[in-house]
Amino acid sequence: MERKKILLRLDPAVHDALARWASDELRSTNSQIEFLLRRALSEAGRLPEGVGRIRPRGRPRKAPEDGTAQEEEQADGDASEAG
């Protein structure tokens, strides 16, 4: 599914605070905004069922030549959902 693109106007101070917070969490500013929106929707009981998972924080791991990185990412994802 293609992701929606929107124009978002923010107060510069709010944007700077979001950017710092995103950096602390190893996310892009865009990912931090999506994370916060999803959390707000979930807390309000408005997150639609079937919404895909958000990508884990940080840079994607480099895949070793034997292809075991995908298995490790799945295991990490399962562990983060449990906590």
Rank of each mutant, 00 (worst) to 15 (best):
E2C: 10
K4I: 14
L8M: 04
L8N: 02
R9E: 07
L10R: 06
D11C: 05
D11V: 04
V14I: 12
V14P: 02
V14T: 09
D16W: 03
D16Y: 02
D16S: 06
L18A: 03
A19M: 08
R20A: 08
R20I: 12
R20D: 10
R20Y: 10
W21C: 12
A22T: 00
A22M: 00
A22G: 00
A22F: 01
S23E: 12
S23F: 05
S23M: 12
D24G: 14
D24C: 07
D24S: 15
E25Q: 15
R27H: 05
Q32Y: 04
Q32M: 14
I33N: 01
F35L: 11
F35C: 07
L36M: 15
L37M: 15
L37N: 09
L41I: 05
S42V: 07
E43S: 08
G45T: 02
L47F: 06
L47P: 01
P48W: 06
G50L: 01
R53P: 04
R53A: 10
I54G: 15
I54M: 15
P56E: 00
R57P: 11
R57H: 09
R57D: 10
R59F: 14
R59V: 14
R61N: 14
R61E: 08
A63L: 14
A63F: 10
P64F: 02
D66Y: 07
D66V: 05
D66L: 10
G67P: 02
T68L: 09
T68G: 14
Q70R: 15
E71R: 10
E71Q: 14
E72L: 12
E73K: 05
E73L: 14
E73G: 04
Q74Y: 09
Q74V: 10
Q74H: 09
G77D: 03
D78W: 06
D78P: 01
S80N: 14
S80T: 14
E81I: 07
G83Q: 11
